[in-house]
Design a binder for these strands. Structure first.
Lengths: 132, 132
DNA sequence: GTAATCCTTCCAGTAACTGGAAGGTCAAGA
DNA sequence: TCTTGACCTTCCAGTTACTGGAAGGATTAC
């Protein structure tokens, strides 16, 4: 059994985050020591690592909860997991399009701005325009 | 002078948001009516619109505060504005790279997942792997 | 007059932590 | 045995930028 610090090191998550995951019921410790320390077993360590990776892939904590459920259920159809992944993919695509647009616009504005001592600035002008 | 509802309609922001901006001192009403209603003048409407656009470009509320300051100061050098814009641009680029990576990885995994009734799923396997 | 709409303030909640304070626990060294 | 330092506990507050809702006053239209 590992204390929370060990679990944190092993999973690559901050201690605070592991405690937070315990609080919200995402990955609970197997047990508590006599003095109240959280104690994690191997399988919980694996879950923590699992969650860290899924979070890094942009899955929300709630989605991680769902994935953990699927992960634990050895008989669940892979369809459900794929569905979650495809949803995430399309969210990522949407976000990328938005960013692309912002990047384009801002670059355009920054290029047009002399960036010198003079106050003329098309960036601010564009924010102040009456048109949308 | 416009009440908060008018200001909201004119600026394209939700009423709650306009009130919030007043609370945090981003765009304060010119005055209050006898009954305590917030009253906005033309110049405040312009600032609200300005903020809405800058927010749409991903500038944080604090950055908007800064931009408003520059916007109000008719003598500030455009260099300062450009600096903020360039910072934002590089943040956007970094974010896009991250998303690109996630998209690539997730697409790869989703492609490899059959998405059928069977439980075999490379997506979950990859989250559960011992390697990083 | 009254109903609908608008306005006010205040409180709480969102997502996912993070920081800090106050205090208990544990292992090692003098 | 005592103490030091590292570790653990809980609880509270703050972060970002709002958003929702409740309770209640103001204004406007009919």
């Amino acid at each position: 059994m590992f204390t929370i610090g060990d679990a944190a090191r092993a999973s690559g998550l901050p201690t605070k985050t592991v405690r937070y995951y315990a609080d919200v019921g995402l990955v609970k410790p197997d047990a508590r020591s006599q003095s109240g320390y959280r104690l994690y077993g191997q399988s919980e360590l694996r879950k923590l690592m699992f969650v860290r990776r899924a979070r890094a892939f942009g899955f929300s904590v709630d989605e991680c909860r769902e994935l953990l459920g699927l992960y634990e259920d050895r008989d669940r159809p892979s369809r459900e997991v794929k569905k979650l992944a495809l949803q995430r993919i399309s969210e990522i695509e949407k976000k990328m399009e938005e960013l692309q647009f912002l990047h384009h616009e801002l670059t355009h504005l920054a290029d047009a701005c002399r960036g010198d001592d003079r106050p003329d600035c098309p960036i601010l002008s564009s924010f102040a325009e009456d048109t949308d």
